[in-house]
């Protein structure tokens, strides 16, 4: 076959799969809302004027932002310690972070049902040490969703940052120290700027992941803490309002793609190597 055509022929099956079975169906979902007889933006007007829908959107934003912020701080510190650890210890710690990451989201959310339930381990423990006199309601609160989400995404942040932090040459931090920089100054002026690309990648993964999650808010938040993912499912499969569900889907896609675009723009601007 002619050389020019070769890459196209080789990738044609995969390209077709993505374009036909992902591109077209998703575009048709996005187009659904615009096809409303009351006008192309009528569905969006309904969405953004509905107090209930906006509550769900803001709740999802809030949960995703808190999850991202906590994961960044916790993940950064832990990744730093992992990156500094001696080789043997380091591989053990990486195993300890990969294991939860590769364990399914249903299993990991289920663990928090067992921990946070009315007769759960945490309530048992608190009753036993006498801090509380009757079990607390922890499930189906925003807090329970956030805790489980942080649990879900911290390993991802650790693994994203370990590689980046390992890549910072020790010569650089040594040089900073020998030139009189305090550890805090070294962190601010050397380590942090070099970790920015990793922090951005990690934050995008965690934010979009938690913003679009389904299983965790379903199990730990229930109807009371409806989030965009569970809301989409409920509209599509319980009330069979496909137009409404498509609008929710469109909002989710816009938020996700905007986040990715803004953050990768930021990454290009802040990249110490390219700059």
């Amino acid at each position: 076959m002619p050389r020019k055509l070769r890459p196209w022929l080789l990738s044609a099956p995969a390209l077709l799969l993505v374009l036909l079975f992902l591109g077209l169906p998703v575009l048709s979902t996005l187009a659904t809302a615009f096809g409303d007889p009351k006008g192309p933006l009528a569905q969006y007007a309904t969405f953004f004027n509905s107090r209930f829908r906006m509550t769900v959107l803001w709740r999802t934003m809030e949960v995703a932002l808190i999850t991202t912020a906590v994961s960044v701080v916790v993940g950064f510190i832990t990744a730093w310690v992992v990156a500094q650890a001696p080789a043997r210890m380091k591989s053990l710690l990486i195993i300890a972070a990969v294991f939860p990451l590769l364990t399914g989201v249903v299993v990991r959310s289920f663990a928090w049902l067992v921990i946070l339930g009315k007769n759960g381990i945490l309530n048992d423990f608190l009753l036993w040490i006498g801090v509380i006199s009757e079990p607390l309601t922890m499930l189906y609160t925003k807090g329970s969703v956030i805790v489980a989400m942080i649990y879900l995404f911290v390993p991802l942040m650790i693994l994203t940052l370990v590689g980046v932090l390992e890549g910072i040459p020790q010569d650089l931090t040594d040089a900073a120290a020998s030139l009189g920089a305090t550890p805090a100054a070294t962190f601010r002026q050397v380590i942090l700027p070099m970790a920015v690309p990793g922090l951005i990648v990690g934050s995008v993964l965690v934010f979009t992941g938690s913003f679009t999650s389904y299983a965790t808010p379903q199990l730990l938040g229930g109807e009371r803490q409806m989030m965009m993912g569970t809301f989409l499912y409920q509209r599509a499969m319980v009330t069979f309002d496909w137009v409404g569900a498509s609008t929710i889907a469109a909002v989710m896609v816009v938020v996700t793609l905007t986040t990715v675009a803004v953050m990768s723009g930021l990454a290009r601007k802040l990249n110490p190597v390219a700059g």
């Binding site: 169906p25 998703v26 979902t29 499912y233 889907a249 989710m252």
Partner: peptide, 19 residues
């Protein structure tokens, strides 16, 4: 080939169900 990661899984699921 990055699209399946970029598009929220739940949106993909819903769209596949419809189409």
């Amino acid at each position: 080939f990055v699209l399946p990661i970029l598009i929220p899984e739940i949106v993909l699921g819903f769209s596949l169900m419809k189409s």
